[in-house]
Simulated assay, not measured.
Amino acid sequence: MSPHIFIRGYLRASTDDQNAERAREALSRFAEEHGSRVASWYTENASGTKADRSELMRLLSDAGPGDVLLIEQVDRLTRLTRDDWETLKTAIQKAGVRIVSMDLPTSHAAMRVTSGDDFTARMLDAVNAMLLDMLAAVARKDYEDRRRRQVQGIEQAKARGVYQGRPADEALHAKVKELRAKGFSIRRTAELAGCAPSTVQRVLKDAG
């Protein structure tokens, strides 16, 4: 890979209760297996259904033509509607960034493309653009299906008079309190408990 092309890792989780850093090790290992390393990381807790994601936009702003946007799965990048996906895709193309996703084998070759290999780069871009469109559509449909099932489940529970709302994760709360009692920092507690730092802070606030 050209020394002027950088691998930029993008890590996203949907909610503060999830650990967006979870995939960092796997992406680092993947880059090493392809003879490179991740030059910079962009991490955020935001829904994949939202087009306005600050860290993703910062990545595109930082990137140069030919840089790689490395993700674990296509749904980490998008669960967007068709129109929003087209807008994001245009921004990615304008930045000249190539998407490499661990769950899209045809995209892996982009890790080995040099800046002067125009023919191979164009062929890869054409193939992966089509496959990304399909996977983006699948990711959106999966999101809509899950949301519909959730709404149906809630409605059925309400009809039976057993709906109680989202329960607190007591095991997670206990783990957070235990780690903090041992003197771990908020950030380290979040890493060990597998959640976001904001979740640790909320648990501690609720505990008084």
Rank of each mutant, 00 (worst) to 15 (best):
P65W: 01
R82L: 13
R79C: 00
W85E: 07
R58T: 15
A95W: 08
E44F: 03
A95I: 12
A39I: 13
G66N: 01
R79A: 05
R82E: 15
Q73Y: 00
L70G: 07
A46R: 14
L56Y: 01
R58W: 02
E55V: 12
I71F: 07
L88T: 03
A51C: 11
L69Y: 05
L59D: 02
A91H: 13
E55T: 09
K94M: 14
S61F: 03
S40H: 13
E44L: 02
L60G: 02
H34L: 08
N45L: 07
A46H: 13
A46P: 03
W85P: 00
I92S: 09
V68L: 10
G66C: 01
D52P: 05
I99L: 13
V38C: 04
G64L: 10
D75C: 05
S47R: 08
R98I: 06
Q93K: 15
L56A: 06
G66F: 00
K94W: 14
S47L: 09
R37Y: 11
V68W: 03
K94S: 15
G96C: 09
K94I: 15
W41C: 01
G64K: 08
L80W: 00
A51E: 05
V100E: 11
I99M: 11
R37K: 13
A46N: 11
L77C: 02
V68I: 14
L69S: 06
S36D: 04
L70K: 10
R37Q: 15
D62E: 10
V97N: 05
V74E: 06
V97M: 09
W41P: 04
V100Y: 01
R76T: 03
A95N: 05
L59W: 09
R98C: 12
L80K: 01
K94R: 15
A95T: 09
S36P: 00
T81P: 06
L77M: 03
V100H: 08
K89P: 01
E44R: 01
L70S: 08
A95P: 03
V97T: 10
I92Y: 03
L59P: 06
E72C: 00
E72N: 12
T87F: 14
L77V: 02
D62K: 07
R53F: 00
G64S: 14
K50T: 10
Y42L: 01
L69A: 11
A51F: 05
L69F: 08
T49E: 09
R98Q: 13
L56S: 02
D84R: 10
P65C: 07
R58S: 06
S61T: 10
N45T: 15
R53V: 03
I71H: 12
V97Y: 07
I99E: 12
L60P: 01
S47G: 09
R58I: 02
E86M: 12
I92L: 13
D75W: 01
A46Q: 15
R79D: 00
G66P: 00
D52T: 12
T81R: 12
I92H: 11
I71E: 06
N45I: 06
P65M: 11
V38N: 04
E44V: 11
D83M: 09
R98Y: 08
A63W: 11
T49H: 07
L60C: 07
G48K: 02
S61C: 06
T49S: 15
I99R: 14
I92V: 14
V74A: 09
L60T: 02
G66Y: 00
S61D: 13
A39D: 14
D75A: 02
R98S: 15
G66I: 04
K50E: 04
